[in-house]
Amino acid sequence: MTVARREKAIERALLVSALSAVSMLALIAAFILIEGAPVMLRHGISSFLAGTRWAPTKGSFGILPMIVASVVVTLGAMVIAVPLGLSCAVFLAEIAPRRAANFLRPAIQLLAGIPSVVYGFVGILFLVPLIRENLGGPGLSVLAAVVILGVMVLPTLIGIAEDAIEAVPRTYKEGALALGCTHAQAIRRVILPAARGGIIAAVILAMGRAVGETMAVIMVIGNAAIIPCSVLDPARTLTSNIALEMGYAAGDHQKALFATGVVLFAFIMVLNSIATMRIVRGRR
């Protein structure tokens, strides 16, 4: 084979591998949809999405309680993660001495490396009793899931928000300081507004992580398939609905779990698309 032909063949092979991620994504979407959509259509999309009764062995597949729980838990996690995570990102990018930053950055990434089952376990042992004894309720609750998720999404939020803050041109900050701003004023009035796009993307991606988290949530949220009335009530998210029942579900019940997956996938794709578009636009 001549060099030119070999080069051409290699290029083609590389192109094929480059298409692997996209084709896997398409394959995942297709398979979840093929498995999940028929049962959704058969029972009626509205009664599936807006039904409040989940009794899969009796043929009731209403996942509204899980949708509500997933949304509430995700937004709740943001209440904790956004102030804490943004502060950490600003700290890393603007305040921290070099050595502190070099220590803190890998430590926060380590937080992302800790398996989600370990988070759930620590949650059961410490957080759940803490809530039960001080605030009442069974302890296994929306609040427990909110706190755990608030911590778990920190690395995602901090990493992307820090990148966004560091991408703000130095001249902006120097200009603000030259006008007599304190560093804190420059951060609040100039740097954060300039980094807004990336910060919003960071928050949205963190929301995606929270919606999708499974094992840690299963262990602390109590898993009752009812719409929670307070943050101290147990609830069941879309992810935990799937993971709890996949082990033994069969027939329409199993298909209904895939249908739950379709809804989850739709949530994630919307969040990711918004975030990715923001990041791409920010780069230009």
């Binding site: 480059a18 298409l19 991620a21 996209v22 084709s23 896997m24 994504l25 398409a26 394959l27 995942i28 398979f31 979840i32 498995e35 989600s116 991606l205 995606g208 992580r209 919606v211 999708g212 988290e213 499974t214 992810t239 799937i242 993971a243 996949m246 779990l257 895939f258 997956g261 989850l264 996938f265 994630i268 794709m269 969040l271 990711n272 698309s273 975030a275 990715t276």
Partner: peptide, 19 residues
């Protein structure tokens, strides 16, 4: 290609499990 990879990175592990 990049968009696909970004999206794949955001897919929750339980969806990978189902798939």
């Amino acid at each position: 290609i990049r968009f696909g990879a970004e999206c794949l990175a955001g897919v929750p592990s339980i969806i990978f499990g189902l798939f």
